[in-house]
Amino acid sequence: PLKGRIGLLIGSLALADENVKRRLMRSGLKALVNVDTRVPFAWPTSNGSAPQWVRGFRLPMAGIAYLDAIRLVEQIPLSAHLTIEARRFPDTSHSVMGEVVGRTRPEEVILVSGHHDCVDENVGADDNGSGVIFMLELARLLSRQCPRRTVRFISYGVEERLSVGSYQYMMSLTRAEQRRIVLAVNADSVSSAVGTDDVLVTATPDLDRLVRRVWQGRKHAARISSSVHGYSDHFPFNIAGVPSVSLGRRSIEGGSSWQLHSRHDNLDHVSADVLARTIDTAAVLLNRVAGASALPFRRSIAPKLAREVATFARDTYRHPWSAKGFDYDS
Rank of each mutant, 00 (worst) to 15 (best):
D327S: 11
C146S: 04
I10A: 01
R250P: 10
R218D: 11
V211W: 01
I6N: 00
H264K: 07
S79K: 10
R218G: 04
G98Q: 03
W53K: 06
L173T: 13
V270P: 04
G7N: 05
C118I: 03
E85Q: 13
Q168K: 13
D36K: 08
N238Q: 00
D68I: 07
L78H: 05
I224R: 04
N186R: 08
I239N: 01
P106D: 10
E99F: 02
Q145D: 03
F297A: 12
G131H: 04
D198S: 09
L32T: 12
L138Y: 00
L200I: 15
R277Y: 00
A176I: 12
G124Q: 11
R140T: 08
A139I: 00
A65W: 07
G248F: 06
P90Y: 01
A42V: 04
L305F: 09
V190T: 13
R209Q: 15
L59A: 05
T83M: 04
D68C: 07
R299C: 13
T204H: 05
A62Q: 13
H81R: 12
F237S: 07
I224E: 06
S113W: 02
Y156I: 11
D36C: 10
F326Q: 04
Q145V: 14
D36W: 06
L247D: 06
R263D: 06
V201K: 03
N34A: 06
T311P: 00
S322Q: 08
T278V: 09
